[in-house]
Design a protein around this nucleic acid. Structure first.
Lengths: 253, 253
DNA sequence: GCAAAAGTGTTCATGGTACACCCATGG
DNA sequence: CCATGGGTGTACCATGAACACTTTTGC
């Protein structure tokens, strides 16, 4: 738990450095052991959870702010980020305010401000992340996508918005470069899609469809050592992948 | 042109009533005579143009703010609005600041603030709109989509972002209820699509595709009076239309 | 009766869905 | 030697693209 002194210092720094009324919340997706994961924070003395978030410095582009915030939580740089919605309900963020209103009068309490929150989702390499709680949190850790805990504030809504946006992206853009290791097998990539979509896909049709995108290179050597038939290893063709990202796949019209 | 007195009054009101650092810009689409149009403003003593925009009141939901702003520019209520992006470059809005910096010192000039702008696009009934300039503008008028003028600030970028978002929407949602009159012919609806996409479509395939969406009702009586064969009149089946809006069409996966 | 607009139909290629079949490996 | 995982192939259907034909109407 924060001391009053720490809180006062944070609020005075915040007022100096950050834009009023604007915050950023990020839904960070990682992939591990066939499961999509989301990076969450649990505040001190709380059972419910929050998304990693923060504020925008006075002369900082918002995308850079999102990157800075995530660098603090994950240790990662140059994260794949996608802005997807602004949550602008005036009553959306009473949590921190309520939590600290005993300690500070409203006019000194940064959290008594109204905040619009810009929602980003991020796709990151699970193994590259070293989860790091912020000063308000006791824990920062991965949670399974299909086993989300209860959220504080409107963060469930933000999480769901991010998942919807990610699912939409599957329809017209490639996904996976930021989530998978350098090399992977087709069944592993399929697990990624299944985990995002929350449903099983046909093995053979998946393979044809993905290969049809023309963004994968097959390695010469199949993976060895496992039981059963050795699967081929694939990697993303970065140039074609980037091109597909900007061009998009098939647009109905 | 604004007098110094008016400007001072605006700035002091703005500081009292609006959130710092947040603005809203809207790309308003209308359809008339086979052409998509966009509602634009031209400031006093300027040749370049701006999108209709404004600020968010301290206790106002952002969607309500966008509605209020558009009500002032168009006279319309309950507009179809879609949030599509936040423009957050710290240097994005120097125009008004430069324009008025001779009149007011920075600390009294509302426009010396940095503003993030939340981009909305709107689909409206062309005939329902009574364009109304704001106090900074000499003109508020429709401009053809395929003949856009030069913009001030980053408003060209915002306009292009909106058009891209609208084109994307065509792929998975119905469009037209907010833009077309109650009744219309198939060729008229096709013109709408062609104008948005900026390309010709095949008459017959268009018809089958649109009808396949199952959101149109055909009137018993065809339109009379014109030259050539009388076309059928259609109207949107509002219930099915709304359902298609929320459900979306075919999602790739 | 001809040009233009509009409704209806047909063909063909493509892409998705649901399968069947074959290969490799460890127990 | 067989269960399991993994690679490849096929039949079928829906959908989209390209194009032909017919109907109506004013000049």
């Amino acid at each position: 738990m924060l001391t009053k002194k720490q809180l006062i210092e944070f609020c005075s720094d915040a007022r100096k450095n950050y834009l009023d009324h604007v915050s950023i919340d990020c839904v960070v997706f990682g992939f591990h052991e066939g499961q999509m994961k989301v990076l969450l924070l649990r505040p001190h003395d709380e059972t419910k959870w929050l998304l990693p978030g923060g504020f925008v410095m006075r002369q900082e582009p918002i995308e850079m702010a999102a990157n800075r915030i995530l660098k603090e939580r994950t240790g990662l740089d140059k994260i794949f980020l996608q802005q997807f919605f602004v949550f602008g309900d005036p009553d959306r963020a009473k949590f921190h305010h309520d939590l600290y209103k005993e300690m500070l009068p409203d006019d000194e309490n940064w959290f008594s401000n109204r905040f619009l929150s810009i929602g980003y989702y991020a796709l990151v390499d699970f193994f590259g992340v070293v989860p790091q709680p912020d000063q308000f949190s006791a824990t920062c850790t991965w949670r399974d996508l299909d086993d989300m805990p209860e959220f504080l504030l409107d963060h469930e809504q933000i999480f769901k918005g991010a998942l919807d946006a990610l699912r939409l992206q599957l329809n017209y853009q490639p996904i996976g470069y930021n989530l998978m290791p350098k090399q992977f097998t087709m069944p592993e990539l399929q697990k990624l899609y299944e985990s995002i979509l929350g449903k099983k896909l046909d093995r053979r049709n998946f393979q044809r469809r993905i290969l049809g995108f023309g963004i994968l290179n097959r390695a010469e050597q199949p993976r060895k050592g496992g039981a059963h038939k050795a699967p081929y290893l694939y990697s993303f063709d970065l140039e074609k992948y980037q091109n597909a990202l900007t061009e998009g796949f098939k647009g109905g019209w």
